[in-house]
Nucleic acid binder design. Structure first.
Lengths: 158, 158
DNA sequence: GATTCCACTGGGCAATATGCTCAGCAGTAG
DNA sequence: CTACTGCTGAGCATATTGCCCAGTGGAATC
């Protein structure tokens, strides 16, 4: 069965109030409790819903700096480099991208000094050829999925 | 009171099993129920814990393509452009970065055609001067906070 | 037209969790 | 010594969970 408007509404509801119980969800959506259970089970089983990780404000935790790095990698060593990067705690995200066959890295740090250290660690990974780094000054749009869900919830699916 | 190892262990626990009840958390952490309650309340109040949004695999939802764009913006129009970008459903994240005073955009799409459309929408935002786009081929490290939490949970705080 | 699925409803049940309150008990700071 | 703070462990009424089941309506199949 396909992902439908009810699924989207359920996920939106959980986006806004993630620790809501199944029963409460059912009430707010106007469906039976078993239906909500079944939907959640199915979404998990289908791999659409992979979890409810806590969302943290890293800056409130001391990691106030976010930086991005674009890495140029030596031929054929991308997998290897990615593994090394994954071992660095402050590396929060890595994507392989088109372009010069490169990696895109997001990392965090506590201070400028700390950031310097993290960047050095990233740059020193064997196989990294060239890097260009930039610091995030602000985040006008924080990671979100909401608009896409809302579209499906409205039934605007093409 | 500062963020301590117990807080980190609690958040790690919730990372692994986010729909766990307070009582179950207390059992697994070996502390009283009230303590867990109090910690969660405090973390929320302090703004460290902002929620438990559902984590979705967008590709399982039809949005199989992720792309990044770096935008060069006309003098002084960054805020304006950011707002326009926020209005595009497929734009999932925007950061203002150092460099040429630019914006960094993450977006998703269903297909190559669809991506073309999204990129066009982004590029056509008034105030955008130049763009360079790249497509995510793979994601060796998906967004994560875990290593940082684990470090605090171990008590490695400097 | 009849049959077979399938998702959903709505109900009942025992077991469990929640929100709330309270007294006691350490360790720390004044 | 005393006040304060954070944690414990307990009790209680109420709400929620997980599970089971019979019934209903629509869509697909025969």
């Amino acid at each position: 069965m396909a992902f439908d408007a009810l699924d989207a509404r359920l996920l939106l509801l959980l986006t806004d109030a993630p620790r809501l119980g199944v029963l409460e969800c059912a009430r707010r959506l106007g469906v039976a409790r078993g239906t909500v259970q079944a939907r959640l089970d199915r979404l998990s089983a289908d791999g659409v819903l992979t979890g409810f990780p806590p969302e943290l404000r890293l800056d409130a935790l001391g990691y106030g700096l976010t930086a991005f790095a674009v890495l140029e990698i030596a031929q054929g060593r991308r997998g290897e480099v990615a593994e090394e990067l994954a071992a660095i705690d402050e590396v929060c995200e890595v994507h392989a991208t088109t372009g010069q066959g490169d990696l895109f890295v997001r990392m965090v740090a506590r201070s400028n000094d700390d950031l310097q250290r993290v960047i050095d660690e990233v740059v020193d990974v064997p196989g990294v050829r060239r890097t260009s780094t930039s610091i995030a000054l602000s985040t006008p749009v924080a990671p979100r999925v909401r608009p896409l869900l809302e579209r499906i919830a409205r039934g605007d699916r093409p």
